[in-house]
Amino acid sequence: MQEMELIHLWKAYDKKLDESLQLNRQNATEITTMKVQTLLHSMKPAKLFAVIIGICWVAGLGLLLVKLFLNDYETTSLFFLYSLSLQVLITAVAIVVYIYQLSLLHNINLDEPVVLTQQKLAKIKASTLWVTRILFLQAPLWTTFYLSGRFFDNIPAGWLIFQCTITLLFTVLALWLFFNIRAENANKKWFRLLFSGNEWQPLMKAADLLTQVKDYEI
């Protein structure tokens, strides 16, 4: 009889332990999910601000470019026209990407399977890397937009060398970043320096927390 009581007590304890573990997993999942939600919400203001500023920038410069191309094309520096045109085009592409990311963030439902949320975060991560690479291609344009058609006429050799050197350096830097901003370089110091703001760190923290949630469900 004593042996049966011990077995019964052991089973009762085992059941309570399982219930306690299940409750702890549930609480951990809820707390972690709340943290993920907070991190994802923290990303929206910066992206929304970038979209608003970007639209104003593209609209303003776009109107200026239309006026210059239609009325003042012959008297306006081609360096200015085409440097500015490329800047507007690249900024417009970035705006589309940010709107796409805001749409993904808005449609994330943390009640859905974790895998689906992870897929959306992966898309945001990939598009963030891609748009950053594209935006850095603007760098050389900031060294050419102010040049005039007469820039190379009777220019001192020293100034010409300086201008060409600066443009070349910015071009090399832009191309290097374009080809090296990739997920596999995320642990490198220069990468962490570039991606230290509210567009990247909350995203990576949220992805790590979602992995924990997935482990809780196992």
Rank of each mutant, 00 (worst) to 15 (best):
M4L: 14
W10E: 15
L17F: 08
Q26V: 07
Q26A: 10
N27D: 13
N27K: 09
I31Y: 04
T32E: 04
M34I: 13
K35E: 15
K35N: 14
V36N: 11
Q37P: 05
Q37H: 11
L40W: 06
H41S: 15
H41N: 15
S42C: 08
S42L: 04
K44E: 15
K44C: 12
P45A: 10
K47C: 06
L48P: 04
F49W: 14
I53R: 11
C56W: 10
W57H: 15
V58T: 11
A59G: 07
G60F: 09
L64S: 10
L64D: 10
L65H: 07
V66H: 14
K67S: 04
L68Y: 11
F69Y: 06
F69R: 04
F69C: 03
F69M: 01
T76W: 08
L89G: 08
I90A: 02
I90P: 05
A92P: 02
A94I: 12
A94Q: 10
Y98D: 11
Y98E: 05
Y98L: 06
Y100T: 13
Q101E: 14
Q101C: 08
L102V: 12
L104M: 12
L105D: 05
H106L: 07
I108D: 10
L110W: 01
L110R: 06
D111G: 04
E112D: 13
P113W: 10
P113H: 03
V114T: 12
L116G: 02
Q119F: 05
K120S: 12
A126E: 09
S127M: 09
L129H: 06
L129W: 09
W130S: 06
V131T: 01
R133T: 01
I134L: 03
L135F: 00
L135Q: 08
L137F: 00
Q138N: 10
A139F: 13
L141P: 03
W142E: 02
T143M: 03
T143V: 00
T144D: 00
T144M: 06
T144Q: 01
L147Q: 00
G149R: 02
R150Q: 07
F151H: 07
F151A: 04
P156R: 04
G158L: 12
G158T: 13
G158R: 05
W159I: 08
L160P: 03
I161F: 14
C164T: 12
T165Y: 04
T165Q: 05
L169K: 00
F170V: 03
T171A: 02
V172D: 00
V172S: 00
W176F: 08
L177W: 00
N180F: 06
R182E: 03
K188G: 02
W190M: 03
R192N: 00
R192T: 01
L193H: 04
F195W: 00
S196V: 02
E199I: 06
E199K: 09
E199H: 11
W200V: 06
W200S: 03
L203K: 05
L203N: 04
M204L: 13
A206L: 07
L209N: 09
T211Q: 15
Q212I: 12
Q212V: 12
V213H: 05
V213K: 12
V213F: 09
V213E: 08
K214C: 07
K214I: 07
D215I: 13
E217A: 15
